[in-house]
Design a protein around this nucleic acid. Structure first.
Length: 875
RNA sequence: GCGAAAGUGGCGGAACUGGUAGACGCGCUGGACUUAGGAUCCAGUUCUGGAAACAGAGUGGGAGUUCAAGUCUCCCCUUUCGCACCA
């Protein structure tokens, strides 16, 4: 009976067993408490990588654990299947994005199944399927009806050569990634979601998400970026014909208004071209605007970016000081923030200060520190701290904090401004001029304007019979069979279908609701199912989605809530952001980065397999194809199997931290599983027909009693580690200790130290210990556990087993080790029966030989007794 | 620049509310079993001195609180991450 541990054999066996017996299927069961465990669904790029493996392993352990704790666990998986890589691959490989995507999905599904994850595959969804996106289109129309969607002009990265829009990551140093021509900012009519309507609510609820990592909450708050201040209107002096007479600005420092000496408009500000139209400044200004438009946004955001601007030739009037302020346009003013106009106060704002210095503009100090005066001539930088008001008319000598409010009040009374807030968060632009996405369900009619597609005509199916164009331009606008349509409102046939598709973040903003009833045909989801399952109890994914995906999902949930479709506002009760999977990089002088299999060992040295030269080991970095420090999960599966891979992912680091990949660590995990396997197989005969011990511990001898107690301690430790902190690494080491204890016991027996007869309860205790080890390990290494569970004579899948509880009596210590410190330093220790009183312990400690040695002649000043732990003698 | 997190053996990492620092694993050293083992089992492994008993030092650096500090407070250094012309 010396069966070897053969991971592949048993893993395939149990995967098909679970499948055939439908063990992973779930449905609503009002009699059971639900637990919705969700991992972020992947983009079907072709293969799963170690990041997925780690993410989904963590999730699977929790899902299986919660299930054994009696919860009705929803644990679904699907595909975030729209997006650009499919288009790129399609062009490169002369295939179709749909074909490419579905093939990838098949491959990745197969890989995930091979990992043994406990998904209910009947709930699988692909966002590129019309069954899915028709409800996204439906919701778009509902949002349109509620004025949650609107259209406005916005800038996109545009490559004139390829005639296409580019995503930010396709712009490399201001150039098109494909043709290396200059990318321009181009204005296009686009669709937007009014996420800013919810800015305040999204911010407020940040503090009502105790199950979220602090870090993510902070990132969300920063992203929403609320600031309080005032909107102030500056009249324009002699505005040209047909131009609004004033410039509204947003400022957080209304107290410095008297110090505003010039105005800066963003280059994109519509007023700029109007002000210079027909003037001598026109060509200079327009050149400047044009130059800014061709600049890559990332270049513009670079550190130490030189401030630069031009005078428009116009002036506006400071509403309080009545000073004539020149109007500039400059690169540091952003159209997206506030009103796109800045009242510049060089004395009290660093950017304005630098700009004023460069262009010789006036600096007026209006806030001075309490202990000194400021001389504008000699200032080296702006003074941005608090102080006392000066040069500010009736507000002089106030504290600037007080003046903020007073000035704002004064402005409101005079109708020159008002108190307001500004958010950094912008409305969500969802238009993509791309092919592989969900079509926006809108029809443009020459008579009726914008008309939503009627519900009965949904879905607007993305046509599959298209030729993708070199350069990445969407084929949709030229596809007449798609664009030509009749208007649903007036019936005229000269209407044109919208050809923009939706941002893929839209699909991922509600997929978790769709999982509740993935086959629902007559609604976006089944109301009862969503009421039962949602919200998600535990969401697990990478920090890279800490802002956009999570914020959009929170926003979408609010939209659904306000439409009365769901009862909750927050979709994810608890969030875990797992760390990255990292590995050292290896590179060769000649060949650059090397894949792990391009490195060969010769003696002590590591050499490049291409040229034989020695390689250098680089820093530990996130696994990435470009750095070649990747491990293919398939290779691990072949060599060690799914259980070892899972075990190592969990053991090497706690989930929220980065994990450093180590081949030797994987070996160690494999070795541990073999240890468990061998012990179980060796004990099989002995325990097969025996019931697990659950009797009076006093019936056991010392050896068995100790083992029995240790087992209960392990149950407690593992349960706490998983339940409270998801610290699987310490849970695993607790089980390792228990396994080591089993081996130690056998070693002692073999060494002949215990010649006494076998204790009558030995088999039953052993059975209890082994059953426990198998159950405790089963969420982590489910296949091995199933196999051993079966082999040791248990019935049913270990999935059906109940998570063990620990017996208080078995945890109770009989003896305590008391530590003796002298002046805080550890000097000695002794054991006492657990019920020894503090006074007695103190007495024993003061008699302790070693302790006395350190006390010597010195008088004892004080003795501190910490219950059940230690005695500190102060001399 | 602002904000957050983290610095513990040769390495990955333990140490719950201040109370035995280094669990568990890797690596290394020695031994056993073996034709052989890179398999397995056993023992050792923070550093310094010592054959050992034992003693001293020790959680990035420096101060402080405390009977007692990896853990709390202050200052500094380093690393990682996030934000960064946000008016």
């Amino acid at each position: 009976m010396d069966e070897k541990y053969d991971p592949e054999k048993i893993e395939l066996k149990w995967q098909s067993y679970w499948d055939q017996h439908g063990l992973m299927k779930v449905w609503e069961d009002p009699g059971k408490e639900k637990y919705y465990l969700l991992e972020m669904f992947p983009y079907p790029s072709g293969k799963i990588h170690m990041g997925h493996v780690r993410n989904y392993t963590i999730g699977d352990v929790v899902a299986r654990y919660k299930r054994m704790r009696g919860f009705n666990v929803l644990h679904p998986m699907g595909w975030d299947a729209f997006g650009m890589p499919a288009e790129n691959a399609a062009i490169a490989n002369r295939t179709h994005p749909a074909k490419w995507t579905y093939e990838n999905i098949d491959n990745m599904r197969h890989q995930l199944k091979r990992m043994g994850f406990s998904y209910d595959w009947d709930r699988e969804i692909s966002t590129c399927s019309p069954d899915y996106y028709r409800w996204e289109q439906w919701l778009f129309i509902k949002m349109y009806e509620r004025n949650m969607v609107y259209r406005k002009e916005a800038y996109v990265n545009w490559c004139e050569h390829c005639q296409t829009v580019l995503a930010n990551e396709q712009v490399e140093a201001g150039l098109c990634w494909r043709c290396s021509k200059t990318v321009r900012q181009k204005k296009l009519e686009q669709w937007f979601f009014r996420i800013t309507d919810y800015a305040q609510d999204l911010l407020d609820y940040c503090d009502k998400l105790p199950g979220w990592p602090e870090k993510v909450i902070t990132m969300q708050k920063n992203w929403i970026g609320k600031s309080t201040g005032a909107e102030i209107r500056f009249p324009i002096q002699n505005p040209p014909e047909g131009v609004q007479g004033e410039i509204p600005v947003f400022t957080t420092r209304p107290d410095t208004l008297f110090g505003a000496t010039f105005m800066v408009l963003a280059p994109e500000h519509p007023l700029v071209s109007k002000l210079v139209g027909g003037t001598e400044n026109e060509s200079v200004v327009l050149d400047f605007i044009d130059r800014m438009a061709t600049q890559d946004r990332s270049v513009r955001a670079l550190e130490n970016y030189e401030k630069e601007g031009v005078f428009t030739g116009s002036y506006c009037i400071n509403p309080l000081s009545e000073r004539k302020m020149p109007i500039y346009t400059a690169n540091f003013a952003l159209m997206e923030y506030g009103t796109g106009a800045v009242m510049s106060v060089p004395a009290h704002d660093q950017r304005d200060f630098e700009f004023a210095q460069k262009y010789g503009l006036d600096i007026i100090v209006v806030v001075r520190p309490e202990d000194r005066d400021l001389d504008p001539q000699n200032m080296k930088e702006a003074y941005t701290d608090d102080g006392i008001m000066v040069n500010s008319g009736i507000f002089n000598s106030m504290r600037n904090k007080d003046a903020m409010e007073k000035i704002t009040d004064y402005l409101s009374q005079k109708g020159l401004g008002r108190k307001t807030v500004s958010f950094r968060l912008k409305d969500w632009g969802i238009s993509r001029q791309r092919y592989w996405g969900a079509p926006i369900p809108i029809i443009h009619c020459k008579n009726c304007g914008i008309v939503p597609v009627p519900e009965k005509d949904l879905p607007v199916v993305l046509p599959e019979n298209v030729d993708l164009l070199e350069g990445g331009k969407s084929p949709l606008p030229k596809l007449e069979a798609f664009t030509n349509t009749s208007c649903p409102a007036c019936g005229k046939s000269n209407a044109r279908r919208e050809t923009d598709t939706m941002d893929t973040f839209v699909e991922s903003s509600w997929y978790f609701e769709r999982y509740c009833s993935p086959d629902c045909h007559n609604a976006i989801f089944d109301r009862d199912a969503v009421d039962y399952w949602m919200p998600v109890d535990q969401y697990i994914g990478g920090v890279e989605h800490a802002i956009l995906h999570l914020l959009y999902s929170r926003y979408y949930t609010r939209v659904l809530h306000d439409m009365g479709l769901v009862k909750f506002k927050e979709p994810f009760t608890r969030l875990l952001t797992q760390g990255m999977v990292c590995k050292e990089t290896v590179s060769c002088m000649e060949h650059g980065y090397l894949f792990p299999n391009q490195v060969e060992t010769s003696g002590e040295h590591l050499n490049c397999s291409l040229c034989g030269k020695p390689v250098s080991i680089g820093r530990v970095e996130k696994m990435s194809k470009s750095k070649k420090n990747v491990i293919d999960p398939n290779v691990l599966l072949e060599k060690y199997g799914a259980d070892t891979t899972r075990l190592f992912c969990l053991f090497a680091a706690p989930p929220e931290r980065d994990l450093e990949w180590s081949e030797q660590g994987v070996e160690g995990s494999f070795r541990f599983l073999n240890r468990v396997w061998r012990f179980a197989i060796a004990s099989m005969e002995e325990i097969k027909d025996v019931k697990a011990f659950d009797g009076n511990i006093n019936e056991l001898n010392d050896e068995l009693k100790l083992l029995f107690k240790k087992t209960h301690e392990t149950i407690q430790k593992v349960t706490n580690d998983i339940e409270e902190r998801f610290h699987f690494n310490t849970a695993i080491s607790a089980v390792m200790e228990l396994v080591n204890a089993l081996y130690a016991m056998e070693a002692e027996r073999e060494a002949g130290k215990r010649v006494d007869e076998k204790h009558p309860e030995r088999a039953s205790v052993l059975r209890f210990v082994l059953d426990t080890i198998i159950i405790l390990l089963s969420p982590i290494v489910p296949h091995l556990s199933e196999e051993l569970w079966e082999k040791t004579g248990n019935r049913n899948s270990v999935l059906m087993a109940k998570w063990p509880s620990y017996r208080e009596d078995a945890l109770a210590k009989e003896e305590l080790t008391i530590v003796i410190q002298v002046n805080g330093k550890l000097r000695s220790r002794f054991t006492v029966p657990a019920d020894t009183q503090d006074e007695a312990i103190k007495k024993l400690a003061l008699q302790d030989e070693k302790a006395l040695k350190f006390i010597g002649e010195k008088p004892v000043k004080k003795v501190i007794v910490v219950k059940k732990k230690l005695v500190n003698i102060v001399v």
